[in-house]
């Protein structure tokens, strides 16, 4: 029997064919659930004694690189991320679609953390959280989210299940420094606190402008192009 184009067909007599789903129903009626149970455990003591070292991490680290294309509005401090390319070495990709989904989700979550999400408690009001709802705790909408291009890099690891490493948190990490570097490249300021919110970026730009005016630092390359 062969499974081709959503149909199960008889190899000897290809005219005998039924939809795949029906073939599986017949098989499960005769043999019970068609399934196999298996498991994979990470090697023990792989990561030593440090805090968090016992979580059963993947035997091999994954590797990720991000490129962020962005612009910074020097009058408002608004950072607009246009596109992110994410290349992730997940070892052998067991399901390319799921790996890509993990990578895109990671970029979205990291981008959100970089640009707008923020947990703030207000010490002047009994430590109340200032963003206790999804209106005041802002997460990016479709309109705010950059285009994302996920590029899977497969370098299988012999220790991992079928050669896989991981595609969980790894693809998230580089997006924050990528955006921070992009802001530095665009306007010459280093922001070392999250999020890179418009007031914070604008304050850094204005502080740098004051330094330039005082002759302490050179004008940044793009300042010459600033709109009037």
């Amino acid at each position: 029997m062969a499974l081709i184009q959503r149909e199960a067909l008889d190899r000897e007599d290809p005219q005998r064919r039924v939809p795949i789903a029906e073939a599986f129903w017949w098989a499960e009626e005769d043999h019970g659930l068609l399934g196999e149970v298996g498991s994979y455990n990470t090697p023990k003591d792989r990561h030593g004694e440090y805090r968090g070292g016992t979580i059963g991490a993947s035997p091999a680290y994954s590797f990720t690189a991000h490129i962020a294309d962005l612009s910074v509005d020097v009058e408002t401090g608004v950072t607009t991320v246009h596109k992110v390319w994410v290349a992730h070495d997940c070892g052998q990709a067991l399901s390319r679609r799921i790996v890509e989904g993990q990578m895109e989700g990671s970029v979205y979550m990291g981008f959100a953390e970089a640009i707008m999400e923020e947990h703030v408690v207000d010490p002047e009001h009994n430590g109340e959280h200032t963003g206790p709802s999804l209106l005041d705790y802002r997460m990016p909408t479709f309109l705010d989210t950059p285009d994302i291009e996920a590029l899977i890099v497969e370098a299988p690891d012999a220790q991992g299940p079928y050669g896989a490493k991981e595609a969980g948190e790894g693809p998230l990490h580089p997006i924050i420094p990528a955006i921070a570097n992009g802001i530095y490249d665009a306007v010459g300021v280093r922001i070392d606190r999250l999020p890179f919110s418009p007031p914070r970026v604008l304050a850094a730009i204005q502080a740098r402008e004051a330094e330039v005016a005082a002759g302490h630092v050179q004008p940044h390359k793009t300042n010459a192009r600033r709109a009037g």
């Binding site: 802002r138 909408t141 705010d144």
Partner: peptide
Amino acid sequence: KWTVRGSID
């Protein structure tokens, strides 16, 4: 109108 997000706010 200025808001942080492109919608909802």
